[in-house]
Nucleic acid binder design. Structure first.
Lengths: 262, 262
DNA sequence: AAATTTCATTATGTAAGACGAATTGAATGG
DNA sequence: CCATTCAATTCGTCTTACATAATGAAATTT
């Protein structure tokens, strides 16, 4: 089966090899390619990937480079190398679906609507709770970070890269203010959603409503140490994003808005 | 500075080298050791780890092994190798605090009470919401998995390894029934907490109350497709665990129980 | 004939040595 | 004093070789 004729060349093989341009290290490129392929169901759980030497030949890179790529995927729970058997794709339940890399690979492989809905569902559960905690635990530094982000958002809108980053920073500062490192680890996924929804709006030219007021309301509730208000305002904010992005008034199966009226 | 005298020997260096016994691969051992050290604050964010060759000499292993270990840590966001600068420990906010390995390293480095509190705080936010979703999305397969787990729990109690596993399985089945893959990725952390609290109880010989009734209540609410009831019952269940493990009636800063009476 | 043991195969795990490339920092020159 | 150049350091990569363990088939024994 294996054609032994094809000698490994200088890492520049136009059609199936990896680019040697400014795309990062080789092992990173391969990890990315494999990750995207696995998430895109080109390799299914339980299947065995080609052996390291095969891959090295296929992509015209060295075996250590292949191994490091596999090591990366293994660290994210996606593959499991074992002697003599080869490297096996693990069951989906073991994958770190919230890892920033894995998330980006998911977006790259299939911009699935389910993924977006799942992420917003998660935000709708987490962020209001985080806001509630933040209202009670925030320090001056957190307030300043959030306030600064709001200022930039107001000045730059979401059309500029810095404005978009400010939006992300706002949510990051809030998660940090919640004072729970483990909860804070979910910020990466939230940031991805924020970026996604904003980029979508820009791409489809739906400037829509000004995002600052809703953020400001959250900020003030946290400033005033009002947990309930913070919770409600954040829920409102996320629901707005859902409405804009998914054209849904609410995510099914999640409880409707709390008692308060808009 | 470098002492060139010490030649790298056959991977068995009693005092500072890595064991060559049945502790897994060398790169895994090193990743583990470095991970624990970093989480234990022996290396602080911003600091540069020893160069790859230095480490290879120190632990009497090969450079590829060192590199694979570093690759593992990099995949979890804990270090960032760069040419000429060396491998730098990243800021804590970038670490995947919910990664199973990272969690286990945290437990190994410092059984911090804050960590336990953080994890239960997260459970108290996530699991009731997940139960609510599960009540609306569960399939027969999910019900069977949960029911089976309950049966085993009732038979084995939490004193046996299988009984403990059944408890974990119950929560895993519930998270799966919630029908959100991203949310489901948090199950690893929840499982760690469940295991932790049960092992703690066994170690301190607090058999305490029978855990089955509370679980059964959650199960029945999900069986009956009653989201509110499921939410409440799960919140009650987690609160019980908090009370047993942390001797606290409630986690501060989180809202008190809903309207219902026990 | 069935079960056990043995052994060769195969893929990952590890080692050693060399070179490439990029970035940092110091030395040099304007 | 600033800019440029250059050299040293460290990660990134390649190559080759051997070790190790697990698999499956063959051979032996019961």
């Amino acid at each position: 089966m294996n054609k032994p004729g094809r000698k490994r060349l200088a890492a520049v093989s136009k059609h199936d090899g990896l680019e040697s341009g400014k795309l990062g290290e080789l092992h990173t490129q391969l990890a990315q390619k494999l990750g995207i392929d696995i998430l895109g169901r080109k390799w299914l759980p339980g299947e065995i990937l080609p052996s390291e030497v095969d891959m090295a030949n296929t992509y015209a890179i060295s075996r250590p480079a292949v191994r490091e790529a596999i090591r990366t995927l293994a660290a994210k729970g996606m593959v499991e190398p074992r002697r003599r058997r080869g490297t096996c794709v693990t069951e989906r339940a073991k994958w770190n679906m919230l890892d920033p890399d894995v998330l980006s690979w998911m977006f790259a492989s299939k911009p699935d609507e389910t993924l977006v809905k799942n992420l917003f569902e998660m935000r709708l559960i987490l962020e209001p709770a985080a806001a509630r905690l933040a209202a009670q635990r925030r320090t001056e530094a957190h307030l300043k970070a959030m306030s600064d982000a709001l200022t930039i958002m107001g000045r730059e809108t979401l059309l500029t890269e810095t404005g978009l980053q400010a939006d992300i920073d706002f949510h990051a500062a809030l998660m940090s203010a919640a004072g729970n490192e483990q909860l804070g680890a979910l910020n990466a996924s939230i940031g991805a959603t924020v970026a996604l929804s904003n980029r979508y709006k820009i791409a489809h030219d739906i400037l829509g409503r000004d995002p600052v007021p809703a953020h400001m309301a959250v900020y003030e509730a946290i400033l005033n140490r009002d947990p309930e208000e913070a919770h409600w305002c954040m829920q409102y904010l996320v629901r707005l994003a859902v409405k804009d992005l998914l054209h849904m008034d609410a995510i099914e199966d999640l409880p409707p808005e709390a008692g308060k009226e808009a």
